[in-house]
Design a binder for these strands. Structure first.
Lengths: 260, 260
DNA sequence: GACCACAGTATGGTCTGACCATATCGAGTC
DNA sequence: GACTCGATATGGTCAGACCATACTGTGGTC
């Protein structure tokens, strides 16, 4: 076998990324610290400013830097920690490309949310965000409003699990299908069933019952996405990724049904 | 309240991304299709080539396009479906920034792998990749080699679940900690225990026993990362994300122990 | 006709240098 | 002290050039 890959010569901007990464690790830079200006960085690394800028676009996309124009302490490229934005863009684009199906996304969400709810029920985290979101959902007058606070509710569950990676995934899974969620709520009209589920989920978490919380989440998502959970389990095509041009199309699927 | 956000004027390259995204959705472009050349795209969208290039860097980072130089049918920007690369970079950088901890990453991996194994045991997917990987692990002479096929084994489980998003997550969770895994295997020396676990996992999946598969995965990861699973559950700080400058540091943690 | 050498050309990759918009800083003024 | 307004540093954008790469097509050679 000997999986030989055509060695593409490292591009200048990739080198810049690597150097910045080294600097983060080496100098112990953390969130909030500033990077040198683009011109200065270009001179230091002996590349053009364009290459530095392309590197910055990548780092910005990945949610590790944020660029501000102007002058002063807040200007320039600052290290940040915003993984969810990247994940959201990634999911949205791959959904658009049909390299991921809505079914797969919802399925992943079920996994994450069941895990989060069970974990949150296990240790007494701060759950006031859950109540707040429920209250705001009750007062919501538009579908857009409802979905916003609904997202806040479900993200709060993930945050209560104590795992920031899981929380970021939850937020991006929600945000990437935000459009469909709003449409679905508008189509649905009555959100009473969803709210009943919400209260049951919160109750299970508050009372510290992991398996009940997990079950309540499943009930909720089955109500919200009846089309997707029609069949007991999904069985899509495997392998959707790197290593050896593993491109593969995705079967067309229905985007649909309610929010959650 | 009224969460006002400073409305940053859309940058040219962001507009380019949006237009390309529209074109993907509108023209029904799919994986394998080519985008116009950078110069042509710049003229069409009335921006400079630099802006087009910055947009391409973002799309490349997100794994939806791949650029080849030269001329011919394969040259230029081609739509691809490689979400795992982006996820890997994201995790690696955020780990470096300590905006995610190794503990959180391993924890997420446990969740994903338990789910995958259970799902894979549920429906009879092709499991030959599992056997292949096990065989190659047995023949591996270096830690690097072992980890490569070990990764293949665990990714194969995720792929057998039938969910490409989950599979991509699995691959990136593994790849992002590849360095630590290799070091850990070198330190460990004997991989016999890990291999025993592997066979048990495979056996449970093959015989269609979801709960046994899930349990075997947990056993395996507890062996591989004793430091992380010392406590029954993790309870890291919540909230690691967007919306309102939610930057927060991460406590320092041990990067450690064996692979899996 | 089959093969090969080579010029042509379209592609991304990089660089330079300029100018703009924005936001702070700081000297000068009232 | 408060205000005004130019200086300045920052990212954002543009135009135009040149390079390396890799296919295309042409024309010659056998």
């Amino acid at each position: 076998m000997s999986g030989w890959q055509p060695v593409r010569r490292t591009r200048a901007f990739e080198d810049v990324i690597a150097r910045i990464e080294e600097r983060i690790a080496g100098d112990g830079l953390t969130v909030g610290d500033r990077l040198p200006g683009e011109r200065q960085l270009a001179e230091q690394l002996q590349v053009s400013r364009s290459s530095v800028r392309e590197a910055m676009r990548v780092l910005e996309t990945l949610g590790v830097v944020s660029s501000q124009v102007g002058r002063g302490p807040d200007a320039g490229a600052v290290l940040t920690a915003r993984p969810a934005g990247a994940l959201t863009d990634l999911l949205r684009l791959h959904l658009g490309l049909a390299s991921l199906s809505l079914e797969e996304v919802i399925d992943a969400r079920l996994m994450i949310e069941q895990w989060s709810a069970a974990r949150a029920a296990g240790h007494g985290a701060d759950l006031s965000a859950l109540s707040d979101a429920l209250e705001r959902m009750d007062q919501a007058t538009t579908a857009e409003d409802f979905v916003e606070h609904d997202t806040a509710f479900h993200v709060a569950i993930a945050e209560a699990s104590g795992n920031r990676l899981i929380a970021a995934m939850m937020r991006s899974l929600r945000d990437s299908v935000r459009r469909y969620a709003i449409e679905a709520v508008e189509r649905l009209g009555d959100t009473g069933g969803l709210m009943t589920d919400h209260h049951l989920i919160r109750q299970a978490i508050v009372s510290g019952n992991p398996s009940e919380a997990s079950a309540a989440v499943e009930t909720h998502l089955r109500r919200a996405y009846p089309d997707i959970f029609r069949t007991p389990v999904t069985s899509g095509p495997p392998g959707a990724d790197d290593r050896g041009r593993g491109e593969d199309q995705a079967r067309s699927e229905d985007r649909g049904r309610a929010d959650g």
